[in-house]
Simulated assay, not measured.
Amino acid sequence: MKKILSFVMLAIALGSCSEDVKFNNEAVFQGVKDNLFWRGQDANAVKSGNVLTISASTIIEHMSLKVPVPAVGIDPKNSDTHVKYPLGTSLTRTASYDFINDLGDEFFYETAIGVGDGEVVISEYDGVYVSGTFRFNAHNTDPESEAPEIVNVQHGTFYRIPVINEP
C-alpha cells in the first residue's frame, strides 16, 4: 500500500509541474505620445524603391516613419550593426502623425529639414520583417490651427513588422 501511495504522490507532484507557454509574435508599433501610452493596430512596413515606410493606425490616429531601406543582415544582438536615422535633418528621414478630432477636423504633424527632431533605430531587418525603436518631436503643419504646436513621442518600439514590397 505504501508503494502505491508513494507512486500516486509522485505522479501528482510531477504532473503539476507543467507550464503552458504562449508566444506573442504579433507585429507591434507603440510608444508614449504626449505622456500617454499609444499603440497602433494594422502595423505594416512598405518598401517602395529605396524608401521604407513603417506605420500604424488607430480609429482616429495615424503614425508613420520614413527612412531609407537599410542593408539586409542587421544583427539584433550586435548593436554595432544597428542603423540610426536622425529626424529633422532630411526629407528622406521623416516622422509624421495625424489625427481627427471630435468635430471631424484633421491635424497633421511632421518632421522635415530644420523642423522637429528625433531618431529611428533599425535593430533588425532581413527583408521580411523590421524591428527597432523611435522617438520624435513633430510640428503642426498648420500655424493657424488650434491644436497643440508639437506632438512628442518617446520610447517608441516597432517589432517584427512585416515588410511589403511595392512595385
Rank of each mutant, 00 (worst) to 15 (best):
F107W: 10
I60P: 08
V120G: 06
D105F: 02
G49R: 13
G49L: 11
H82P: 14
P86G: 02
S64R: 04
N44D: 12
G88D: 04
T141E: 11
N44A: 15
G114C: 02
S48C: 08
S64D: 09
N44I: 14
V46L: 11
S64H: 05
G132E: 01
K84T: 11
Y85T: 07
H62M: 04
H82R: 07
N44L: 15
S48Y: 13
Y109A: 04
F136S: 08
E61C: 08
G73N: 09
H139G: 00
P76N: 07
I100S: 10
N78V: 07
S64F: 07
P76A: 01
L52S: 06
A71W: 11
S55H: 05
A95H: 00
V72E: 05
I122Y: 03
A138T: 09
A138D: 05
N50H: 10
V69K: 14
E124L: 08
A45F: 07
I122K: 00
I60G: 12
M63D: 02
F136T: 11
K84L: 05
P76Q: 10
E106T: 14
T94P: 14
N101I: 12
E110I: 06
F108H: 11
E119N: 12
D80P: 05
G114W: 03
D80G: 13
I100F: 09
T133P: 04
V121H: 00
V69R: 10
D98I: 12
I59M: 12
S90K: 00
A71I: 15
I122E: 00
V69C: 05
V67D: 03
A56L: 06
Y125I: 06
K47R: 15
T81P: 00
I100P: 14
G116W: 01
G118I: 07
Y97Q: 06
V120A: 02
G116D: 05
G114N: 13
R93T: 14
V115G: 01
I100A: 09
E106R: 12
S123H: 03
F107G: 12
Y109L: 08
A71V: 15
I100T: 15
H139A: 10
N50T: 15
V72A: 06
E61S: 15
S123W: 01
P76S: 06
Y125V: 08
F99R: 07
S90T: 09
I122H: 01
V83I: 10
A43V: 13
E119Y: 01
F107Q: 08
G118L: 00
N140H: 13
S131E: 05
T94Y: 00
P76C: 02
R135I: 11
S48L: 15
Y97H: 03
